[in-house]
Design a protein around this nucleic acid. Structure first.
Lengths: 340, 340
DNA sequence: CTGTTAGCGCTTTCAG
DNA sequence: CTGAAAGCGCTAACAG
């Protein structure tokens, strides 16, 4: 920032006015070619860089988009971010990423910070323990567009891009049933998280549809979504007198953690217990056995959310309809659930 | 941005001057308590948020730090970013992340964009094909601090936080030798990448140190760092008449990809071929067999780089010494290299 | 074709 | 204790 060249520097050097320099740089039609060339050459020579700050202040538009995600270390969220950036970049928009670390307070603080820095809009996937949405409502009151993605905030009025988790879970369980599994367990995700609830509901409803009794013992819960978080739940399932013959895990991380427990206990997968995850994380095709899963269109979700946001930003504030997009996930069968 | 409350709004409402409002909000001693309370209450009521843009323009300091990484989807870089953010956040500094996607052009464009947005400093890990460092030199000429991390730019004068890749490779190969391996192969990383070169050199020198002939056939190269990129190189190694009895892979991704090839070929790991990776990615302890690796202090590297940058930003420009920190990696032995 | 002026939101002298 | 004015870098009327 220190030694940056300004338009005024160029003007002084060339003994013309700043406005002429400004116009010359932006190729304004009412400027002599000769002047343009002169200005542009000097600008290049001195390494002039327009000050985006000044522009943003003037136009009340920063071309910055605030993104708030629970974490960036998972492939799931980082690939969504890639989708977002691939839409924003060509439009000259920039992503400003903030991690909430699954903390409601951090999420709230992130919003305030981004608000202070005057981002033009928000893309948010909320935390586990976000139940109060007033910090999101505030955005709408300030006419700042918000697109919620992946994790639904039920009751919140906003654009939304979600995945049909219920349907994904149904596909997973249908698949296990079609493979002949009778006692299908579910390692559910954290309570109060819409996606986890939907997956669990899909699991339960599919069992019922096939007249399979829902055994509460077969539903255990994981604390988070990492591989190590799958260990405890899997051990609990193995400690049952009447063991399951399949596990539908809330995500691939948990599924991989479970696989390691099954391996330790010399349980054959899929012969004794079949396993299926959710996400199609890259490592799922390299685990042993390779993991069946439900593919989520993360990259597409990011792109779609970003497109909707950009449209909202450039639309007249009134008479906008809120969009509610639901993407379809897709079953990917691999060795962990394939009867041979 | 649209309907934001400004200091002028508050002033008008209270029929006092903007400067008084400004002082009251910043708790200036020369302001009557009564006025302060009045102002602060109205500010709260109307949801006043200081405009960071205006402040940045005024103070010529944005409190934004530009981060440029090859990609964010790998755990390696995303955990470095976490370390960076955990240092920046408490200091009221914000990370602005840009992905170069291993493209020199994108990296250059990223710098220009961030320069335009007037970040106070840069944290950069450069791409494969960055050989020309003039875009980095430019920063120093503009007095914008830069800290290079992980991937060294040899010859560039800048603060650096690196990992001793050479030493890590030595540890890996020493370990394999101590396990009795005689024909140790190396799957090297992309050419022209300092870290990959250093690891390869560590590999070669350790063999020499133990009077083991370096067999060029046993050194193959991977194109990138993903799991699938390990498949081809591993197959090439298996096609040798005289097969290796160990593989030292340039990173965990490649090692995991190799494991899948070995599994397919029913080769026992570690009995027939031992495998060791580099990075200590979370999945490495959940692969089968669990993967021995060299742990890199990614989070610490991010924190240290950020601390050095903040110090550089707040230091007088002259008489700064450039720091050159080299962190030590650490051997983590797991099943893939443990003779039982 | 070019210059002058005002103002985006804020703070900070300098005057009262 | 408070207000008026200037300026951070830039652009867009409005004049010439």
């Amino acid at each position: 920032m220190s030694g940056s060249v300004t338009i005024i520097d160029l003007a002084r050097e060339l003994k013309i006015s700043p406005s002429t320099v400004s116009r010359a740089l932006r190729d304004h039609p009412a400027i002599k070619d000769q002047t343009k060339v002169m200005v542009q050459e000097l600008a290049k020579k001195l390494g002039y860089q327009p000050n985006a700050l000044a522009l943003s202040l003037l136009y009340r538009k920063t071309n910055n988009i605030g993104i708030i995600v629970p974490e960036i270390t998972s492939y799931f969220f980082s690939s969504i971010i890639c989708g977002i950036q691939d839409v924003l970049d060509p439009e000259g928009q920039h992503a400003v990423i903030s991690q909430s670390n699954e903390s409601y307070e951090t999420e709230k603080k992130g919003i305030d910070t981004l608000l202070s820095s005057r981002v033009d809009g928000f893309l948010i996937s909320s935390t586990f323990d976000t139940t109060d949405y007033s910090h999101f409502e505030k955005l709408r009151q300030n006419n700042i567009p918000l697109v919620v993605f992946d994790r639904d905030c039920e009751g919140l009025i906003a654009d939304k891009v979600l995945v049909d988790d219920y349907d994904g879970a149904c596909q997973a369980v249908e698949h296990l049933i079609s493979m002949g599994c009778k006692r299908i367990a579910h390692i559910a995700g954290p309570k109060n998280l819409s996606i986890a609830e939907h997956r669990k509901n899909g699991y339960i409803d599919t069992l019922k549809k096939h007249n399979i009794a829902v055994d509460e013992d077969l539903i255990v819960q994981s604390q988070f979504f990492q591989m190590e978080d799958g260990i405890e739940p899997a051990k609990r399932l193995l400690s049952l007198k009447d063991k399951p013959d399949a596990i539908f895990a809330v995500n691939d991380g948990i599924a991989i953690g479970s696989l390691s427990v099954l391996r330790e206990n010399k349980i054959k997968v899929p012969e004794e217990i079949a396993v299926i995850g959710f996400d199609n994380d890259p490592f799922s095709s390299f685990s042993y056995p390779s993991l069946s899963t439900i593919d989520q269109p993360t990259y597409e979700m990011g792109m779609l959310a970003a497109r909707i946001l950009l449209k909202a930003i450039s639309s007249p504030e009134e008479e906008r309809e809120f969009r509610h997009e639901v993407l379809k996930p897709e079953l990917v069968v691999r060795d962990s659930s394939r009867r041979k």
